[in-house]
Amino acid sequence: MNAAEEHWDLIIKPKTSLFSIDFKQVWRYRDLMLLFVKRDFVATYKQTILGPLWFIVQPLLTTITFMVIFGNIAKISTEGVPHILFYLSGIVMWGYYSECLTKTSDTFSVNSDLFGKVYFPRLIVPFSIIISSMIRLSIQLVLFFCFWTYYYFYKGIPLQVNSTVFLFPLLLILMAGHGLALGIIISSLTTKYRDLRFLVQFGVQLLMYASPVVYPLSSVPEKYKWILLLNPMTSIIETFKYGFLGIGVFNYQYLIYNFLSLVVILFVGFVVFNKVEKSFMDTV
């Protein structure tokens, strides 16, 4: 056998290495990723009257509910900014994270038919979810800025906008990363143990109350704050509110902690995903 024959383009063998995700392959399939994004976007609202308007209706109705319950009945502080801006910002940001998390956590179970018939880098699916949710997020942000403009310019409410707004891309990456990482860990584990799916369904709802969506972080007693700060969304939502509304807690250390935890959890996520990717067809 000569040297030329020794070269193989692909060797399929029992995977043993912990971290062998082929990001080059993922890149090669980028067209598929975009088509999945398009499919998710187009297919969700086909045959609906309001179409993508539903992206706006959902957070609006939630905001109104929160205004009634938490703002008017429970009278939880919104740190002096209009209720609608306070709740809407939290809801929109939390909505993105929770959508990334819940949808990616279903990757294997929802796509098992497809995965069983054809190979493509499985990570394409969670990546496409992150991106298609971003479309939803940007529409909702437009809604948020409509209200923001209304209050700032017409009502003349002094919202202390500051340079922290430029951290928004970082916030976006952090949210997407955390949603993705936790999502793929859960999706990897649910292929064998379905129990987790039930946990995710209500777990995400409960987790929202552990994030400063309906209350400001400043209203939490100092000794319990660290518990909330374990939740990556806490510092993200607070930083967002700090930048655009001038309220909330902003601390670089929180963001650095957030980033480091993202690196760790994302690494774990890829390792677990990588391990499950090769065998899940036998267990799902």
Binding site: I11, I12, K117, V118, K278, D282
Partner: peptide, 27 residues
Amino acid sequence: LSKVTYPTLGEIKIKGRIAALLEVGTG
């Protein structure tokens, strides 16, 4: 062969681009 699942033992070596058609209309 189509990488849908991985072997327990042994290996498959492939030269060139490979495509598998296990079903029509997948996806």
